[in-house]
Each structure stands twice: as structure tokens, then as C-alpha cells.
Design a protein around this nucleic acid. Structure first.
Lengths: 221, 221
DNA sequence: GACGCTACCCCCCCTAGGGGTGTACCGCCC
DNA sequence: GGGCGGTACACCCCTAGGGGGGGTAGCGTC
């Protein structure tokens, strides 16, 4: 039952807290309407929240069971996917599993918050951003400071989890050739001569999945 | 000038402190004759010591300049190499660089201490252990608890530093085929399906080189 | 003496990974 | 308009790495 006087509470889910902190900062600009109640890297959602926002960074897309597990968690009223990939199949699979919103990472803060409100009000929302392919302002990812793009970062993250190129291609819905292109581009940027060296760089630069729960996030320090 | 009433002071040098702590415990059985004054992983020797004991675990053998740097350090009176590899060339190279002792890792504690005393007295000591190929009691290495042998551990350590198989072969004086055999044996033991996974396992199990200096080690707790 | 373990080495085979280069489409900025 | 950066993909080629064997030797233990 939406209560317009109380802000919507949201839990953020992904393996990387840099990524979630970026999202949290974006949402925090509208803290009178949406508050981030919990940030979970590799931990189940614990507090009762109105919406769980599942960030797809280096995560399985909605054709996998992870999403279903979130939907089944009684602490989460509704689950929303936050991603780049708008393949119709994925949207359909998400819907089948009970997801209530499918939002683009290109959405500016205002629209993101508006979409969350619609979901909270009971709508099923798909908000693809046509044309706008660039990440929304405020998004963050590991290696961003070192000049890696969002996609490069994601692929290095998956490699740093021990996946093969084929695994990465499957999970990201990219062609194996594309994955190789990104990997080589990463090597050049970080100065790695081999996958092993890239992984070691990753370990030192925040590409190892986190395992925390941050409760009551309120805009940081 | 050896003083029989004062125990010999020793600094231990290697990239892995598990390894050095093992050596320290061995020597500590004779603490009235030899004391471990300092344990250095990736740090130059700082205290004045009578002998620097260079453990060759996952380190360049004496054909490289690392040894020369130790000999040139004014804090170190004499440098001793502690290794498995007794190729005559390596012994010669060590001698050329100013090393005063070349001791086998198969030496039991008593003989090791005796050899250190001889070095301290001014002798050049080479103590190869014919036949006895097994590590002396008390030696330790990363992954030992998980069932890796000394050699397997050493090779995983080098891989976890980003070296290629060829690099590892060159540094360990093994054939590339042998290196591959060891690697596969490690994979089986730790359950890795790829080099990347093995490296990640290594990162989690103490195979990343340390960077400490432990002063005044006195037999631990 | 047989057995098991470890170190060390060899061969073959085959795929995953690494490198080069080129293309297309998009959006942004000067 | 042109240039640049990002995404996404294609083709080629070639080597490092991974998987399967098998073999010798020395040691320790039963």
C-alpha cells in the first residue's frame, strides 16, 4: 500500500559495492522520495524494503535463477532489474520470474526515481532509453579511476572471478570475439601481458566480489 | 670477529613469511648459539646481523643480482644461500658474488646451525646433502596444510606472481614439461580448472608475496 | 622385495587465449 | 562537417597453456 508521505525504501543488490554506492548516491539526490535502506553484496536482503534494485553489473542477467531467489525473498516487496541489456527475451524472462520493473542504466536520476515510484504504485515498468547509450551521471564501477570503461570493467570483473572467455560471453550476451576485444583493450590500459597479470591487477583494484551488508545507508559521511 | 659467548645473529630473507617462520622455528631450537634477529619479506635488512640467510623458495637462484644486493648491504656481515639446487654453476656464481655459505634445505637443524657457525668463523661452507632429498623437519611453505608439496607450492607461488610457464621453468631450473606436470598436479589438488582459478586460490591461501619486516623475533608466542 | 610417494622428465594433441586489423553504428564535441 | 571514443563484431594467425599418457630414480614403510 503506497503511502505518499513515507519515502520508498530500496535495497541495492550486486557483487560490487563501488557500483552500488554509485547508484545510492544517484538515488540520494531524491531522498525525500526514495531512500536506500540496505546495500547487499553477496548477502540476502534482510530488512523489509519496498523495492529490491538488482544491478546487473557482472551479474547473471534475468535468465538465471538469482532473480527468482530475490523475488521469493519475503523481505522484498518488489524486484526491479537495473541493466543495459534490453533483449526482449530477457525482459520476458524477468517478467515470468516476477520482476516488476526493468530499467536502463542510462536513465537520469529523476527518471529512475519516477520509475521506482511507478513500480511501487503497482505498475510493471520497462524503461528502455532509446539512443542514449552512455551511462547515467553518477554511476561508478571498479577501475573507473584508472580509465576503464563500464564494459571493460565488467569483463575484467568476470575474469577476476575465474570465468573463461566463453563463460563471459555467455553471461554478458556478447560474442566471444567481442569479449576478446575488450580483454585486449583492458590489457593495454592496465599494462598486463597475460590474463594472470590482469587478474592480479584486478585483485588489487577492487575487482574481487565483496561480501558485505551495509545497513541504513544515509548519504555517506 | 666471532665471539663464542654471544650467539650469532641471523636475518632471514624471502618473499614468504610462512617459509621464514618455519626456518626460524628450526633455528630457535638452538637459540643459545644462533638467534633470528630479523625476518624480511621484500624489505632490505636493517639491523646489523652476522649472517643473512637467503631462502631460495620462489626466489631467483644465485645467478641473479638479488644475491649481490644482499652481499653489498653493509648491515649484513655474511650471506648464506639456503636452497635445493646444487648445480655447480650456481654455487660458483654465488661464490663470485661474495656468498659465504651454500646450504641444503635437507639439513637437519643441528647441522644447519653448525654450518652457520662455520660461516661465522670465516669458512666458506657448501653442505650438499647426498641422498637425503626430503625437506628437513620443521620447514614450512604456503599450501602445505592443503596437501601441496614444497615444489608444487613454489610453482604455484611463481604463477601467483604472474609468471608464464617458461618464466617459471627458467627461474626454477626445471624443464617446461616438468613445470606443466606440477601445475596440473596442483590443479587437481586444489580443484582448479584454469590458471586463473589457481591464481585466485593462491591469493586466498597465502601465495601472494609478503612485504613485512619482523624485528626481534624470539620464538613467537 | 613390493608398494607408495615424490621429484623430475618426455611425448603427443588440441583448445583457449592473445595479437593484429578492419568494419559498422552511435553519440558527443569542436 | 569531421574527429573521437565507446560498443559490438568479424577474420586471421600463432603460441601458451591444459589434458592425456608414460617413464626413471630415490626414499620410506610395510
Amino acid at each position: 500500500m503506497p503511502d505518499p508521505r513515507r519515502p520508498i525504501t530500496v535495497a541495492l543488490v550486486d557483487d560490487y559495492d563501488v557500483v552500488l554506492l554509485g547508484v545510492a548516491k544517484i538515488i540520494d539526490q531524491y531522498r525525500d522520495r526514495v531512500v536506500v535502506a540496505e546495500i547487499d553484496t553477496n548477502k540476502p536482503v534482510r530488512d523489509d524494503v519496498d523495492i529490491v534494485l538488482y544491478d546487473s553489473f557482472a551479474q547473471p542477467e534475468s535468465d538465471h535463477h538469482e532473480i527468482g531467489a530475490l523475488v521469493r525473498n519475503p523481505n522484498a516487496r518488489r524486484v526491479v532489474v537495473f541493466t543495459w541489456n534490453f533483449h526482449p527475451d530477457l525482459i520476458a524472462k524477468a517478467r515470468e520470474q516476477g520482476v516488476r520493473g526493468y530499467l536502463s542504466k542510462a536513465l537520469p536520476a529523476r527518471e529512475l526515481v519516477a520509475a521506482l515510484e511507478k513500480v511501487h504504485a503497482g505498475e510493471f515498468v520497462v524503461s528502455e532509453v532509446a539512443g542514449r547509450v552512455r551511462p547515467a551521471n553518477g554511476l561508478d564501477w571498479p577501475g573507473r579511476g584508472e580509465g576503464l570503461t563500464d564494459r571493460e570493467s565488467e569483463i575484467l570483473a568476470l575474469i577476476t572471478q575465474g570465468l573463461s572467455n566463453a563463460d563471459v560471453a555467455a553471461q554478458t550476451y556478447l560474442s566471444p570475439n567481442t569479449v576478446k576485444s575488450y580483454i585486449r583493450s583492458v590489457y593495454r590500459k592496465i599494462g598486463a601481458a597475460s590474463r594472470t597479470q590482469a587478474v592480479l591487477w584486478g585483485v588489487d583494484h577492487g575487482f574481487v566480489p565483496d561480501h558485505h551488508r551495509i545497513d541504513h545507508w544515509r548519504g555517506g559521511p
